[in-house]
């Protein structure tokens, strides 16, 4: 193998700037997607465990749609198809006037895809809380929403904390799919540097290091969150 190493090119302009901009877009996509996906996924997850049959069927369909279609295809649908189906004025605004349409489309696609996965996670967490807890809440005269808010959810959240952090890592990784509709996030930038310089090892190495850093930080956050949230009595 014949390869001229040149790690310092990563510090040269414009490549260093490209990488940092890419990291910025990756973080922005992940955070915006997460902020939408978390409340949505929680609501759908609660609906999945609802006593109403209609709510269960509808939320089950929602989850199955977003989980059984590849994220890349979902992204294309949001980008190419949805603006066509919107009412004329709104569609036009989407295509012409919305600043950074690629970014917002990708963030929406990520958000809905992730919400389906989070819904399953919340359903599993809610069902993992022992039944006696629900009955006890009932017996003390709490309404269902009160029981959910004060008794069930606090325990379910503790149960699903580890997979919840790995879901956040997933959204960070999945944000790389935004490159297919033209968002210059981290992976796209490293690809672009490889294209310009033919130094793929350094370019992809830098992106790999950034993603690993994110994974390490998330791991630390989870461990410390877990320590502070653990209840004195085992759940």
């Amino acid at each position: 193998m014949n390869y001229q190493w040149n790690w310092s090119l990563l510090l040269d302009e414009p490549y260093a700037g490209w990488l940092l901009a890419g990291l910025g877009w990756t973080v922005a996509l992940s955070v915006v997607g997460w902020v939408i996906a978390l409340p949505l996924g929680t609501a759908i997850g609660i609906a999945r465990t609802s006593s109403s049959r209609w709510l269960r069927v509808l939320s089950g369909f929602y989850v199955s749609v977003f989980r059984n279609i590849p994220l890349l295809l979902q992204m294309f649908v949001w980008f190419f198809v949805v603006p066509e189906l919107l009412p004329d004025r709104l569609g036009l605004w989407f295509k012409r006037d919305l600043p950074n349409p690629e970014f917002w489309t990708a963030a929406l696609a990520l958000a809905f895809y992730t919400s389906g996965r989070l819904a399953e996670l919340f359903r599993a967490g809610l069902q993992a809380v022992p039944r006696g807890q629900v009955m006890a809440a009932d017996a003390t005269g709490m309404s269902r929403p009160q029981a959910l808010r004060h008794v069930i959810m606090p325990q379910a959240l503790r149960i699903i904390l580890p997979p919840l952090t790995s879901e956040f890592l997933s959204i960070v990784k999945n944000s790389s799919l935004a490159l297919t509709i033209g968002v210059l996030e981290l992976t796209a930038q490293s690809r672009q540097i490889e294209n310009f310089t033919f130094h793929g090892f350094e370019a992809f190495g830098a992106a790999t290091a950034f993603y690993m850093l994110v994974a390490l930080i998330l791991n630390l956050v989870m461990v410390s969150l877990r320590r502070t949230l653990t209840l004195p009595v085992a759940v």
Binding site: M1, K173, G200, F204, A207, T208, M212, V214
Partner: peptide
């Protein structure tokens, strides 16, 4: 396991798309 689970699949595909020819010549 940590490395492969920390990075996106697209990046893995790029790595090998670029690296396999380089290694094999």
């Amino acid at each position: 396991v940590f490395v492969f689970r920390a990075i996106p699949l697209i990046l893995v595909i790029f790595w090998f798309y670029f690296m396999v020819p380089l290694i094999l010549g």
